[in-house]
Design a protein around this nucleic acid. Structure first.
Lengths: 346, 346
DNA sequence: TTGAAAGCGCTAACAT
DNA sequence: ATGTTAGCGCTTTCAA
């Protein structure tokens, strides 16, 4: 790949402002040891000339890196797109650049991306998306990130808690509880769960919430069909197909994210099964299209954009003695995809 | 922001291999002037030690940059999310890192982002999203990019043609024609158009396609209500509100992108207006949720993910004498949101 | 074919 | 408060 042409250098700004290189550097970095007057002049000259520091020189010289690495499963998954939007929005305000990589929900690939970002000297790394339930898989990533943090790198994660870093924690368990309680309140008892891979923490946590709500009604998750497939739309379709075949008396399907719920709805539509008249369906996340689906989706709202912002905010703060935790809160959004269980007189 | 810790340096590798810094550099860069034997040894030592070059030092010293700058309107707009997915997918394969910025459809902000990416020494810049119909607005961006390209930077754009760079060109006009012809074929004559800002090239081009189809049926765009609002979901809602108030006999609404079409559908639902029984609705883009809407959306499919890949492919090739152009093709996808005009006996 | 040395543009000691 | 200077790790002339 080619290299861009040369540009304005700090020394040019310094000359124009009639000061030394060092003074100009201090002035622009907002460091101490420059009179207000001189600092203002330097900044003004820099603005006039349209000076932008060369980040490579700056970083090489030991300065701070201004790039943020962001690892998501896939940016074209609406859940991650919204998180990315939040990160980029705040980064823009702070004049930071965001480098995005895909993990593809593959722990090895994720680890490779982490290493790549570290090699690129990203000053901050944000990892969004479920961790893996297997501790051994998480261990290597944790070790690499620990080294990175020891060297001064900052890390924030969204939706995982085993990585020894500041974390934004979605209300997975409480949300799972809320949505299940909602269905139980509508009289549903023959409930099926459509879940992503059982190795994903997010899946495990949301399932735990489902289980706890069931227990409160004297039911057990063990008695319900739980189908684990891909944590994406297509997974919802195939899971629904199986549920329909193996548990035809099911009256409600809990999908553990909105993408899967969309697949569930699509399959029910194909089969001509009315929602919510014959089958209630719930999602999780409240991606922005959830309100526009047919029918509009009852789901648990997570503030994805804010979660992205918060993660970057955490990373921009100096590290705390112990990793910080920021729960996100959640909100049950009841729309048209859920209704009373068939045969219920309410 | 903090700086990551020090690492292995090239000089360490050189010492271990018993050669000079320069030789080690040549060997690892695969340049000429090193004996096969020495080159192999150096590479082996580097591998053993797990050496990864410091990209800041490399770039500062005049080496190639391995980062790709990508400017989109908003990553959490599904259209751009899919394009970004395509770019990142190919970048991952080529071990490049992608820096994403938002333009927010603001030409000034876009220009600022371009400058920022150039300052960051991105080797490639990809700009996705409509250009601006006003030549003066485009001129400054074009000038900056020309300078960047003269310095060896590579540029590819998606959906604009006035920037003097390799371009991926969506079939906007042909798509606009196709969707309009579809409605005319269903007997619709009282058609309204819901468009984004009239300053956007994409809007102008799609509108031109609509106009040409109308002309073939002896109609003129001038006789139809064309409402220009934000090129997003909310714009579709407000535009529909106005159309309903001012042109109550309308039987079909052409939205110039899917986001607006979703807003149109939402407003019609609120008002209890049946689709397609009382009003047909069309979109443009075929974002992945279009099939799951209520009702599923008739629209024009553009291969967004492939467009992202293609743009990066173009940029990775050496520049051609004249900017390359890659039309995308399109496909009319007829779903449930369009039907015969009311009162038609077909 | 190889090595020595001069920067790339900036920050951060160290002087003044 | 300001200036001088030594690197940061690499690529790239220029010599040998």
């Amino acid at each position: 790949m080619p290299k861009p042409g040369p540009g304005l250098r700090l020394i040019d700004v310094a000359h124009r402002a009639g000061v030394s290189l060092a003074t100009a550097s201090r002035a622009l970095a907002g460091r101490q040891g420059v009179s207000q007057e001189v600092a203002d002049r330097v900044r003004q000259v820099a603005d006039e000339l349209g000076y932008v520091a060369n980040p490579f020189a700056r970083t090489l010289a030991g300065g701070a890196s201004t790039t943020v690495g962001l690892i998501v499963h896939q940016v074209d998954d609406p859940y991650f797109a919204e998180i990315a939007g939040g990160v980029i929005g705040l980064a823009d305000e702070r004049r930071l650049l965001v480098q995005i990589c895909h993990s593809g929900r593959d722990p090895d690939h994720e680890l490779r991306q982490i290493r790549h970002l570290i090699a690129q000297r990203a000053g901050i790394i944000i990892i969004a998306g479920s961790g893996y339930h297997d501790p051994r898989v998480e261990a290597e990533a944790a070790a690499v990130l620990a080294g990175y943090q020891r060297g001064g790198g900052r890390v924030a994660v969204i939706g995982r808690h085993t990585l020894g870093a500041d974390a934004v924690l979605p209300d997975n368990e409480a949300g799972g509880h809320a949505v299940t309680a909602h269905l139980l309140g509508l009289g549903h008892r023959r409930i099926a769960v459509v879940a992503g891979a059982s190795g994903l923490n997010t899946v495990v946590d949301r399932l735990a919430g489902v289980a706890s709500a069931l227990r409160e009604h004297g039911l057990s998750l063990d008695d319900l069909p739980v189908v684990h497939t891909g944590f994406v739309r297509e997974g919802g379709r195939t899971a629904t197909e199986r549920i329909l075949a193996e548990h035809p008396s099911t009256t409600a399907i809990i999908a553990l994210n909105d993408a899967m719920a969309m697949g569930v709805l699509a399959m029910l539509r194909e089969r001509g099964i009315g929602v919510p008249s014959r089958m209630s369906v719930t999602g999780f996340d409240d991606v922005s299209v959830a309100a526009d689906l047919a029918p509009s989706l009852t789901t648990v709202r997570l503030p994805m954009t804010a979660m992205g912002r918060t993660a970057l905010e955490l990373a921009l703060q100096p590290p705390a003695a112990r990793p910080r935790r920021r729960p996100t809160g959640h909100q049950l959004i009841v729309r048209d995809s859920t209704g009373p269980a068939p045969g219920q007189s309410r």
